[in-house]
Amino acid sequence: MSIRMDHTIPQVALMVAFGIFIWTLLEYTLHRFVFHIKTKRYWGNTIHYLLHGCHHKHPMDGLRLVFPPAATAILCVPFWNLIKFMSTPSTAPALFGGGLLGYVMYDVTHYYLHHGQPTGDVPKSLKKYHLNHHFRIQNKGFGITSALWDKVFGTLPSTKSADKSR
């Protein structure tokens, strides 16, 4: 749609990349401030458990690793409207497409980090980083697809070797 509205392929590629970049910040923010919110009341605890707590209680359960597609489709509507409001009509489709692609990459990556057997250095490191969040330091390491925002916001967990030297 953005190409049909007179943007060039390189421009659209840049907008899609920006949409992915924005998704990574949204991924980090949601995980840190919504999925790890401290609750004290029954309904807060129940909602938190249903949104994310059950995933931490059963991190290897394949049915608790990705957001249900129907719920994702419903949540796309307010995100689409927000992007339309914050951008121009010709850039909104590419930005939204990039954000949606970022979300799909997040879901696939998250599932793989729990159930895949990575052989390369980068996937192995990412799996170790994410499982560290689950099994060692749950109040750090909120990035799933990368540690970028944990580095930026100071929530990067220490390594075991750094812990031993203290």
Rank of each mutant, 00 (worst) to 15 (best):
L63F: 05
K40E: 11
G97M: 09
T155D: 04
L113N: 03
G62N: 14
V66K: 14
Y42L: 09
T29M: 04
E27H: 07
D163W: 02
F33N: 01
A94D: 07
V108K: 15
H110Y: 07
S2A: 08
A162N: 04
A162R: 11
A71G: 12
K127Y: 09
V34K: 05
T29L: 08
A13R: 07
K151F: 04
F35N: 09
L51N: 10
P68G: 04
H31T: 09
I137S: 08
L101T: 12
K160S: 10
G98I: 01
L26T: 14
G102T: 01
A70L: 14
A71F: 13
L156R: 04
K164C: 08
S125L: 14
N81A: 08
T46Q: 10
H31K: 12
P157I: 05
H52A: 11
W149T: 13
M1N: 14
G44H: 14
N81V: 00
K127L: 02
Y49L: 00
I83L: 11
D150E: 06
A71N: 10
T88G: 08
R41H: 15
F18K: 13
I137W: 01
I83F: 02
K127M: 12
D61L: 01
P78S: 03
T29K: 02
H110F: 01
V66H: 11
T155M: 04
V77W: 06
V108I: 14
M1S: 13
G44F: 15
F85Y: 14
L113Q: 09
M86N: 12
G19T: 05
T46E: 09
S87K: 04
V77F: 06
P89Q: 05
H134W: 06
I47C: 07
P68R: 06
T8P: 10
T72S: 13
R4V: 00
L156D: 00
K40I: 06
S125R: 15
V122M: 11
P59H: 08
A162I: 13
L126D: 00
K164Q: 12
P123Y: 04
A71E: 09
G62T: 10
